[in-house]
Amino acid sequence: MNTNNKFMLYLPAISAESNNNISIISADVRKDATYFAHYITRDKRLVPQIEKTYATVEYASFIDIAQKFITEFQLNHASKFVVAVPGPVISGKSEPLRLPWKLDAEEIKQQTGISQVYLINDLEASAYGLGNDDEKCFQTIHHSENVVPGNIAVLAPGAGLGEAGLYWDGKFMRPFATEGGHSEFSPRTNDEVEFYQFLQKIYGIVTWESVLSTEGLFNIYRYVRDVKQQQQPEWLTREIENNNFTDAIIKGALESRDRICNVTIDTFMLFLAREANNLVLKLKATGGLYLSGEIPVMLQKYLNKDDFYKNFIVSDKMESLLRDIPIYLVRDTKTIIQGAALYAAFSGE
């Protein structure tokens, strides 16, 4: 993983000798699984050593998982410990809605004995993680000959809807977190108003995360099935009962197995283009849009269709700006854990 890349991340401590040959533990905490990795820094690079995955729900606290990883691989000597969490980080603390416990950097420091502990939002970590990737990790969805150096937008629908940016200061890219996925969803057409009303009865406040996430994908499906009266096939009923909805609906659409699958995915892709448009405009992300997260990777075929780009550039006055935005799919599934480690290694002392 070479940090010398086209992103020019702002890593002010990358040349500090004190950050060479140090041991770093990185964790990516999610609702179902918590991922751990151990890295050594060497010649301004992160060198991976160990990776391990744990079932989040089997542990009473994050400390319990952390201590198990540290003990199992004898990592008490680690210099730094960084944790990427799916929620806002305020003053070294986080209470992610999708996790069963709170996280506190000071508590982790006391319990593990590691002197430098960091909490970072998972999408901010993912933005840093782009700096670990080479060209083969990106698939071009739309190429532009008129790219203007500038901010970058990162949009990642998965268990939730992650949104982040990289601010271009004229020399470096500086990643930052947002909670844009929790901004309110706005319908445009009569059908979308009907969809909004369907979700409003369930949630009260309808956010983009209620539409663009694994739960959001199921919400679209329920609307297509229950309001638009599309028949649910028996094979899909079995998949839903086996908690395999996301994989099944996407595979069903890719194979054109049943109309309800294609309608669901087409609707999801329309909304994905719409929110990508929103994020790019709000960040003035002339440097590009990067689609990350588990769902876009599964929908590569749909992203390559003209429909996604055509829906992305729809605007009242900004089509000329949107038309020149390059769009990429991030195929690397480890950007969060690697980016968190890069942040801990080189962003400060």
Rank of each mutant, 00 (worst) to 15 (best):
P187A: 11
L329E: 10
L97I: 12
N146M: 11
Y302Q: 14
G348Q: 13
H77T: 04
W208A: 04
Q111V: 10
F218I: 06
H142S: 04
A276S: 11
R257C: 02
V314S: 12
L321C: 08
G113K: 06
A13V: 08
V85G: 09
G252T: 00
F271G: 03
P100M: 02
V227E: 08
I108D: 05
K6N: 10
T286Y: 04
L97K: 14
K334S: 15
S115Y: 10
L283V: 13
S79I: 00
A159S: 12
I336W: 03
A125Y: 11
V85C: 08
S61W: 00
A273Y: 10
V148W: 04
F195Y: 11
V83D: 09
P149W: 08
Y309D: 03
T335C: 12
I202L: 13
K68F: 06
Y128D: 06
V206K: 02
K310I: 08
K201T: 02
K109E: 12
Y59E: 00
Y128M: 03
Q232W: 07
E179Q: 11
A33C: 07
P175V: 03
L303K: 07
L155G: 01
H143D: 10
G129S: 01
A55H: 07
V154K: 06
R259S: 15
L155R: 01
M298Y: 11
L329Q: 07
V57R: 15
S292G: 14
Y221K: 02
L283G: 05
I220K: 02
K109T: 12
R188Q: 15
L212V: 05
Y328A: 08
D266R: 13
S256D: 15
V297R: 15
P187C: 08
L155S: 01
L75Y: 02
C261I: 07
N243H: 13
